Amino acid sequence: MSFQDLSLAEQLTVARRGTAYFAQRLAELTDEQLYEPTALDGWSRAHLVAHVGYNAAALCRLMDWAASGVQTPMYASAEQRGREIAEGATLSAAALRNLFDHTVARLDEKWRNLPASAWDAQVRTAQGRLVPVSETAWMRTREVWIHAVDLGNGGRFGDFPDVVLDSLLTDIVGMWQKKDLGAGLMLEVDGRAPIAVQPDSTVSEKIGGSLASLVRWAAGRGAVGVSAGGEVPEPPRWL
């Protein structure tokens, strides 16, 4: 089952579960640990928390767009988004925690109060895609579950609901295909039919493992629990 097969109420529940999972990981960090580096190039945990907080604020703007019909883009520009995160990473620990809590509450309030008739309204993502505003549930789900792992204090892909893992793998493989990446790559998820990333290419590399391990590898978060014919290669770039 994919995320899109769920009802809207179920989708929002999964997003809220992911938010709670991120919040738990965040609460377990000391203020000092917030400024330690992560595995994401050039980002501390403070950058990550600022990003997740400002992402919620950006999704609020899409919700406002759907509610009012007035175009309110997620970000004025890519530069503005980057500047916002960089400046957010300099906030005090208390301010960062408040940013996360406040923007989470705002987004949840907008999800609760959007009229049923507005959920199909078309809005534009930061990448320029036109999508129904209901897509914000998946956009947020992806952010909070993956970045909870990126905090580096105990989050695991193995904790994700299967519907999130399945949908992440579909997204990642779809992006590789769109970018014409991954020729010759075959993914072998335990207990499932293999997935040829580029079906018309000759298979030259097989990567196998559990669903959680393969999604972790495909998302660029390490090769723990996956196997290949030799050394496990780096995955194609996803985002």
Rank of each mutant, 00 (worst) to 15 (best):
M1C: 05
S2P: 05
L6R: 13
S7P: 04
L8W: 09
A9E: 11
E10A: 15
L12S: 03
T13Q: 15
T13K: 14
T13H: 13
R16K: 15
G18T: 11
T19L: 09
T19R: 14
T19M: 11
A20G: 10
Q24H: 10
L26P: 03
L26W: 09
E28W: 08
E28K: 11
D31K: 05
Q33V: 03
Q33W: 07
Y35I: 01
T38N: 08
A39I: 11
L40D: 00
G42Y: 08
S44E: 11
R45E: 07
R45V: 12
H47R: 11
L48N: 05
Y54E: 14
A58W: 10
A58F: 09
C60V: 12
R61I: 02
R61Y: 03
S68C: 04
V70W: 00
Q71H: 09
T72L: 10
P73K: 06
Y75C: 03
Y75H: 10
A76E: 13
S77F: 11
S77H: 09
E79Q: 11
E84R: 12
A86P: 00
A93N: 06
A94C: 00
R97I: 08
N98E: 13
F100H: 14
D101K: 13
D101H: 13
D101T: 15
V104H: 14
D108E: 15
K110V: 06
W111R: 09
W111N: 02
P115W: 10
A116N: 07
S117M: 09
Q122A: 12
V123I: 14
Q127K: 15
G128A: 08
R129Q: 14
R129L: 14
V131Q: 06
E135G: 01
E135D: 14
T136R: 06
A137Q: 07
W138T: 04
W138F: 13
W138N: 01
M139F: 09
R142Q: 12
R142Y: 03
R142K: 14
R142E: 04
V144S: 08
W145I: 02
W145N: 01
W145A: 01
D150P: 08
D150K: 07
G154V: 04
D159K: 10
F160P: 05
D162C: 02
V163G: 07
V164G: 07
V164W: 07
V164Q: 06
D166W: 08
D166E: 13
D166G: 00
L169E: 02
L169H: 04
M175C: 02
Q177Y: 00
K179A: 10
L181S: 07
L181A: 12
G182T: 08
M186Q: 15
M186E: 15
A193R: 10
P194M: 01
A196C: 08
P199G: 03
D200N: 10
S201Q: 12
S201V: 06
V203E: 07
V203Q: 06
E205V: 13
I207H: 05
G209N: 00
S210C: 01
L211E: 05
S213N: 13
S213A: 15
L214V: 15
W217Q: 01
W217Y: 04
A219L: 03
A219F: 03
R221L: 04
G222P: 02
V224D: 14
V232E: 00
V232W: 02
P233V: 05
P236V: 02
R237W: 03
R237D: 03
R237E: 06
